[in-house]
Design a protein around this nucleic acid. Structure first.
Length: 489
RNA sequence: GCCCCCAUCGUCUAGUGGACUAGGACGCAGCCCUUUCAAGGCUACGACCGGGGUUCGAAUCCCCGUGGGGGCACCA
């Protein structure tokens, strides 16, 4: 994959990377990370690191990259600049490209003039294309500033083959003499990517469909060199959840508001798992008929470029939540425990591994994101809980009645020396039965008293983990709280 | 404005001329389970953009519309 370090690493790039990775693993190839950093003006500090960090987190670390080295390095285009200059000159020698000395000002003027004439397509006017090659060479040698443009044929048409879309035929009259080497000596994408793909022996080019308009240019460049073409695959782009337009910065701000993001590096902090994110993005642009919950290994097994889809896909965060929850439930207790522990630590709670291993099975199927563990299990590690007095009152009862029930619960539980759920549940149920109450009412009071919240993991198992002394003291506090309410109407 | 791509439930998709009464997943609704919340199970709702062809037969092939998306830089 070949992203440019000009901003944050987003979902679209991640999906391309995933498919690159799957294809490489499937076919025994290498998954290479190449940084397209030829636009020094747009370079963003830290984005190279973010790209690599994101890939690592997803679990699709490149086999070869600026970090890992490899046989096809260097993997940063700015470190390969001589190569592009040689290749650009090669094209000039062959008559497939030419130096252009036009100033940005002249180009700008020409553009404006064409616009005023309302031409169908504004393009280079060809002034330097008409130059005598030896004259041009002399001007280059004399140190005059220049760029190199690809000499596009004006006649005929270009047929480019996309693996998903078939032949794409474009009349050459719609094509332009695009700049392939800039005046700073660095190549534009068009040259750099073609040269590197050839040098690095890239067999499949997977990229976003925003490259489709320059696709004819690219095949023309490859053909001008006389090289074999890779398999070209233009993936659909990701649309915003509404399906109207592609994801934008504005949209990402919206997503952040409800705990989502379009940047891979944000997902960890949001409580998402690599498994969930991977599964989610895999299914956008890849048609899997059934059994769509897949691990990375299963994806490798099932991947094929023939089952990729060309149509644009609206992203759907609800589906991400679904896959995240599903993959969380697939984790072993050890694994899940290790993944949620940092959240308790970060919250300043004294988490103990032994207790955590007991808690994890209780909350596993309740988690959508890992950080949900805090809402479901913080009370286990707190010294005290402070329930909302109103919530201690059971439905259909008043504070006095609720206090009576709480007292009875205390009586029953304090009589037991063993507080394991097998021991506590039968007498409690017997009490509910004999008192003519319903389980919701009694267990509800107990739940709020002991956990401090209306929603919690299963009550009796929870009490067992909290421990006898804490359970009893929390219950006593609840009784006091209810009685105080009673006195102040 | 010009060029290009795309088109099946609200969303992601299966479907490659007859196996389609169009399948799955998310979401949504209901039921079951149940001490809360979930999870799980079951059921319901829900689509071939329109019009022409081709063919004995079209969701599938062709054409034209329409709609959506992308692109028109010394950015990638």
């Amino acid at each position: 994959m070949a992203p440019s370090p000009t901003g944050r690493f987003h979902l679209g790039s991640a999906r391309t990377a995933l498919f690159d990775y799957l294809l490489a693993r499937k076919t025994g190839g290498q998954f290479i990370l190449r940084l397209e950093d030829t636009d020094q003006k747009r370079f963003v500090e830290g984005s190279e690191e973010e790209i690599m960090r994101s890939l690592d987190w997803l679990g699709i670390t490149p086999d070869e990259s600026p970090l890992h080295g490899g046989t096809f390095g260097p993997y940063r285009q700015t470190e390969r600049r001589d190569l592009y200059q040689q290749r650009a000159n090669e094209l000039v020698q062959k008559g497939s490209a030419y130096p252009c000395f036009c100033s940005p000002e002249r180009l700008d003027q020409s553009r404006k003039e064409q616009e005023s004439r309302k031409v169908d397509r504004v393009r280079y006017d060809g002034l330097c294309r008409a130059l005598d090659p030896s004259d041009a060479a002399k001007r280059v040698a004399s140190g005059e500033k220049y760029v190199i443009r690809f000499k596009m044929s004006h006649e005929g048409a270009t047929t480019a083959h996309d693996h998903l879309r078939g032949d794409i035929v474009t009349e050459n009259k719609y094509l332009d003499d695009t700049v392939i080497l800039k005046s700073d000596g660095l190549p534009t994408y068009h040259l750099a990517a073609m040269v590197d793909d050839h040098e690095m022996e890239i067999t499949h080019v997977l990229r976003g469909s925003e490259w489709l308009p320059s696709f004819p240019l690219h095949v023309n460049i490859v053909r001008a060199f006389g090289w074999d073409e890779p398999v070209w695959i233009h993936l659909s782009i990701f649309l915003k959840p509404s399906g109207k337009g592609k994801m934008s910065k504005r949209e990402s701000a919206e997503a952040m508001k409800d705990g989502h993001s379009i940047f891979v590096d944000d997902f960890k902090g949001l409580g998402y798992t690599p498994e969930g994110v991977l599964n989610w993005i895999a299914l956008m642009g890849w048609g899997v008929a059934e059994d769509d919950v897949m691990s990375l290994d299963e994806m490798i097994q099932r991947f094929s470029i023939d089952t990729l889809t060309p149509s644009p896909a609206a992203i759907n965060f609800q589906k991400l939540d679904h896959f995240n929850g599903t993959h969380i439930r697939l984790l072993t207790t050890e694994d899940l425990s290790a993944r949620i522990k940092p959240y308790f630590v970060a919250a300043g709670l004294p988490v103990e591994d032994e207790a955590l291993m007991k808690i994890t099975p209780l909350i596993r199927e309740r988690l959508v994101t890992l950080d949900d563990c805090l809402a479901f299990a913080s009370f286990f590690f707190k010294e005290d809980v402070s329930p909302n007095p109103d919530e201690l009152i059971a439905k259909g009862l008043d504070a006095k009645q609720s206090a009576e029930i709480a007292k009875k619960c205390l009586e029953i539980l304090s009589a037991l020396s063993d507080i394991s759920h097998q021991v506590t549940e039968p007498p409690m149920r017997a009490y509910v039965e004999s008192a003519g109450l319903n389980a919701n009412q009694v267990f509800g009071i107990l739940r709020v008293a002991v956990t401090g919240q209306k929603v919690s993991p299963p009550l009796f198992e929870s009490m067992e983990i909290i421990g006898r002394e804490k359970v009893l003291s929390r219950l006593r506090n609840a009784i006091t709280s209810l009685e105080n309410m009673n006195m102040s109407p």
